[in-house]
Amino acid sequence: MKAKAVIEGRALKYGDNINTDIISPPQYMELPVSDAAAYAMGAVDPGFAEKAGTANIFVAGKNLGSGSSRETAPLTLKYLGIEAVVAEFFARIFYRNCINIGIPAIECADAGRISEGDELEVDTAAGVIRNLAKKESYACSRIPAHISALIEDGGLIGHLRVEKEGRK
């Protein structure tokens, strides 16, 4: 699966400090991601799993993904159909985990201007988020070159596979 340079879709919007205990509650980590997903974000939004079916861009404020190194957090978001995560800034392990499983993690100082349900175009190559609902554009981080190769290959494992088998 190739990553898209422009991700189009609808926003789900949350605030600051959405940590990985919130995204992937520890009590349900013993379940497969497909079963645990029903409990994702439960502490702040019990309806998240259902809503995620109607939107594909997860937008939050400051310090998204703080806390545990649990990859079940981005894996759960991916399972529920999230194609990109946008935040003012990220906690570092969560950021790496997103990249490593092939979800673009985009820093955007104006993430706070985005509202729940806004139609967005996230252009990871140009470094711009177009908010079609509000008719606004925001500068966002571009994916660095050494990382875009990873995402294009579908994450770290896809990248290792390509390195092993040779680039076609």
Partner: peptide
Amino acid sequence: TGVGSTEMLGILVT
């Protein structure tokens, strides 16, 4: 430092 599981897989391979 802490890493995710996929990153650990990459480390175990390389």
